[in-house]
């Protein structure tokens, strides 16, 4: 498990508080909270690179640009977004790695 938590002022994301139990379970969680463009995408790409095909990467970001950038990144890299959820200004996306 890779967990990067760079900003101690923000509370950590709490899995128990997720209102939707149907959201995917990630193999790797990348917390890019507090980072601005392009760092969430950089960290997401590094995490997806590090996992095996079929595994799930969750990225958490507070930069609202991620709402557009996550689908754009998935389209460019031909990876799959399998879930999205926003809690206030904290945005979660789940990606399934389809290929290297």
């Amino acid at each position: 498990m890779v967990s990067q938590r760079p900003d101690p002022t923000l509370p950590p994301p709490d899995p128990a508080r997720r209102p939707n139990p149907g959201l995917p379970r990630a193999d790797v969680v990348v917390d890019a909270s507090g980072f601005l463009c392009p760092m969430p995408i950089v960290k997401l790409a590094q995490a997806v690179k590090s996992v095996a095909v079929g595994q799930i990467v969750e990225v958490v970001a507070t930069d609202p640009g991620i709402l557009a950038d996550a689908p754009a990144w998935a389209q460019m890299t031909r990876q799959d977004i399998i879930g999205a959820w926003s809690e206030g200004d904290r945005h979660h996306f789940w990606f399934r790695k389809l290929h290297e």
Partner: peptide
């Protein structure tokens, strides 16, 4: 560099 890093992270 933002564009370069974003593109490199997108596999380009």
């Amino acid at each position: 560099f933002n564009i370069a890093v974003g593109a490199a992270s997108s596999g380009l």
